[in-house]
């Protein structure tokens, strides 16, 4: 259900409590009404039907990928 995609914050409108986000070249405004944490320009948020619902957690996002990339790199060396 619930298609949601990571998008990058490129503009913040405090008055409207909204942001403009970019998803690979497609820009759309998104509401901050439901976002629990503060955002800055350059942050990545998860977007669902026009609302930012969560900031993407940087550490966890990188962890999984790094883990497997390291294994893959080790194997290549062997």
């Amino acid at each position: 259900m619930c298609l949601a995609i990571p998008s990058k914050v490129i503009e913040i409108d405090h008055e409207m409590n909204s942001i403009t986000v970019d998803t690979m070249g497609a820009a759309r405004s998104a509401s901050l009404d439901l976002l629990p944490e503060p955002v800055e320009i350059g942050d990545y948020v998860i977007l669902h039907v026009g609302f930012a619902i969560r900031k993407v957690d940087e550490k966890s996002a990188i962890e999984v990928i790094d883990y497997y990339n390291e294994i893959l790199a080790d194997e290549q060396e062997e």
Binding site: L3, I5, D22, T23, M24, G25, A26, R28, L47
Partner: peptide, 13 residues
């Protein structure tokens, strides 16, 4: 596929 088209596809499924 151009990046912009991919982005629109992501957004709209």
């Amino acid at each position: 596929v151009k990046r912009e088209v991919k982005g629109i596809c992501e957004l709209l499924g």
